[in-house]
Design a protein around this nucleic acid. Structure first.
Lengths: 82, 82, 82, 82
DNA sequence: CTGCCATTTTACCGGC
DNA sequence: GCCGGTAAAATGGCAG
């Protein structure tokens, strides 16, 4: 079994996994930080839900957003949702 | 409208949003890095899918995993899944 | 082992699992049907993405929707997104 | 505006949406039924979490599962996870 | 280019 | 009322 653990392949796999794990940890930390901010904002009276929508919105191409909104409005009209 | 933009609340909201956006950017970068590693590993002959499962597995509490596995085995037996 | 398979508990577990599986199957069938409709709609020129938003919208309480939209508009103003 | 509401396209859109909504309703009902079963099973002493894993497991192709498990075991060995 | 699969994100619904 | 976990939805990447 030693030969497997010490093998080229084994060392490569181990390296890949460890690199991923380190990055995952960083990612989780950041995700937690983001959650913290929303929480803080919420406790100040802002809606975290709406803030999330806002952030998502800002990250998208402007024209795409406009187009979709326009289409949505049309569909609403067709369905009589004024 | 200037009063809204300049208001305490306005400045706080702006600050929250900008902090989130900065962190989101970092998170995306890391996510890309992780994807890169899996891709590289895959091109070396490893299964990225199984590697992902492995990473997920290692991130969980050992006893919890053991307990669930044990229970799962029992249920399988009961159902005749060998 | 026969005693486990034949036990009260075993029979109950089996029954639970089988009932779930039957329902899951039905659920999947319906999900597929829904996907079909969106696909058909898309091929007729409608945007499936916008249609999904529309359906989601209609399933929510009107006031909730209105309130969120209003808040979003306010936040946009604060951030100078016209 | 009447022409839009009465138009071919309008009627088609309306029909699509309504069909989707009807199916979504059915889907929700079934989902509720499934939740009920798990709840009942749990109150009888079974782990709903493990039962869910079991159901998921059974819904997958046997060989795929076997192959992945085998590979996972190999990777674990390589990493010295007993 | 389209459909499929996996991942991520969001919403929901329990328990505490 | 908050938080955790769970299920659903949406997005993005991959293969055919």
């Amino acid at each position: 079994m030693d030969d497997i653990l010490q093998s080229e392949a084994g060392q490569r796999l181990r390296s890949f996994i460890e690199r991923v794990e380190r990055l995952e940890e960083e990612k989780d930390t950041i995700a937690r930080d983001i959650a913290e901010i929303y929480k803080e904002a919420k406790s100040t009276g802002f809606s975290d839900k709406v803030m999330r929508r806002l952030v998502a919105l800002r990250s998208k191409d402007d024209n795409t957003v406009k187009d979709e909104e326009a289409l949505l409005a049309i569909y609403k009209t067709i369905l009589g949702m004024e």
